[in-house]
Design a protein around this nucleic acid. Structure first.
Lengths: 235, 235
DNA sequence: CACTTTCATTTTGTCGATAATTCATGCGAT
DNA sequence: ATCGCATGAATTATCGACAAAATGAAAGTG
């Protein structure tokens, strides 16, 4: 989540992972590899040889294999027969597929959230909407504001809107999908300075949500996601 | 999927798994353990000690650990710190949560499928609906027909209806959810002879789908799932 | 030129050692 | 006398090194 796009591949500089407190090496490796796959430091379809990863992260083979198995279940890594692991590929088909699923889940989560959300939820939505608006304006103005800041605010706002949907499973699935989309986002630089009117898009969504207008919020979020998808695809 | 509810726990009878052709031991172990968790042979919250599993399935510790990591990502197993693995617990909260997510995904998948489905899809829906109807009738009549047969038909019908949704991700997520629900289904015997009018429920769904009435199909499927949930909960 | 056989690389599985955790036991305090 | 706490031993998970199986490629032969 930190670095946007480091020296992509062939970055064999050792980046040893901290064993972390009360965390198993397997988990540490899992998070480290996931981060590097999402950020693109490990390129799509790149083969993940154990020995190399072992040198890279300074971890033994066993925790690495276990971490890779988990990533495999998460869909970020592909494991074929006896031919080892590789970073999951990136394709347009997969991306449109992903967008469909994402819209479906976000729409439903949003509807449920609007239906069940209480006052605290409303406050949170309003608060994150306000923060995001500030970041949106700053982004337009200074062109190259701290991007990770904006991303955090963006993510927080969208998370807040669906937080009251009442299903941890729905949110978990949503998280997994976002994880995947993040890869495409970061893979394409086009999205950065796309001159879309984010200020109004987000403001409209926030308004619809706070007005409890499920149909309108649903339509707007679908449009919002699809626009992102179109921009990313056309770039 | 085969056995409904074998001697539950303390079944330490060796059930060695076949290495399978062109399949790695890790995968074999993964499927075997998943089957036993879903079927209830491995009880909820039961601790999964490596040594014991090793004796049970006749597999070394490493493949087992890797399989458990994957199951962990799938949500069927919980892994805590350095305290080993355990079968994921079953709770009412989790179940209602699950039902919400399931309805959300199935509704959307169904709508998309109705929108995009072609003639081949229609045929498949009609065919599986016909088969399921036969099994439904048989189930009512003979009281205790081959249950696995009925389940296969039921599963095939519902799968057919959403098959044309156009998103592999949506279907994958749906599969994961169904996996979880299956555990609750099999854990409760109440569902078996629940005298609900399955014949008509299924027939109505099939009719709505084939008539391309997305709203009605959506409503029916939600009702269908929620009824299952209610029956299961009340038992 | 195609097919087979062999060899090297890579992945997978087994084993033994280390480190963490849990349970039981004994001591001290209330 | 009982409850709480600390200590120690046994159990258990985690890790890294070694060995076996499988895959892919190259070379040799029909």
């Amino acid at each position: 989540m930190e670095q946007i796009s480091p020296p992509l591949t062939s970055d064999d500089s050792a980046r040893p992972i901290s064993p972390a407190p009360g965390e198993t090496l397997t988990e540490a490796a899992y998070f480290a590899i996931r981060r590097d796959i999402i950020s693109g430091a490990l390129a799509p379809e790149e083969r993940l040889r154990i020995e190399r990863l072992s040198r890279l992260y300074g971890v033994g083979p066993t925790p690495l294999r276990e971490a890779l198995q988990r990533l495999c279940a998460a869909g970020l890594v592909h494991a074929s027969g006896n031919k080892g692991f590789a970073v999951a590929p990136l394709s347009m088909d997969e991306f449109t597929d992903l967008t469909i699923a994402r819209v479906a889940i976000e729409e439903q989560a949003l509807r449920l959230s609007i239906e069940h959300g209480d006052d605290a939820w409303e406050s949170q939505v309003a608060a994150t909407a306000y923060q995001l608006n500030k970041k949106d304006v700053a982004l337009i103005a200074s062109g190259e504001v701290a991007l990770s800041d904006w991303e955090a605010a963006n993510s927080a706002f969208h998370a807040a809107t669906v937080a009251a949907c009442g299903s941890r499973w729905l949110l978990t699935l949503r998280g997994r999908l976002n994880e995947q989309v993040e890869r495409y986002r970061l893979a394409s630089v086009a999205l950065r300075r796309a001159d879309r009117d984010l200020v109004h898009e987000h403001a409209d969504i926030a308004t619809a949500v706070l007005n409890r207008d499920a149909d309108r919020a649903s339509a707007l979020i679908a449009q919002h996601f699809r626009k992102t998808a179109t921009l990313l695809a056309g770039a």
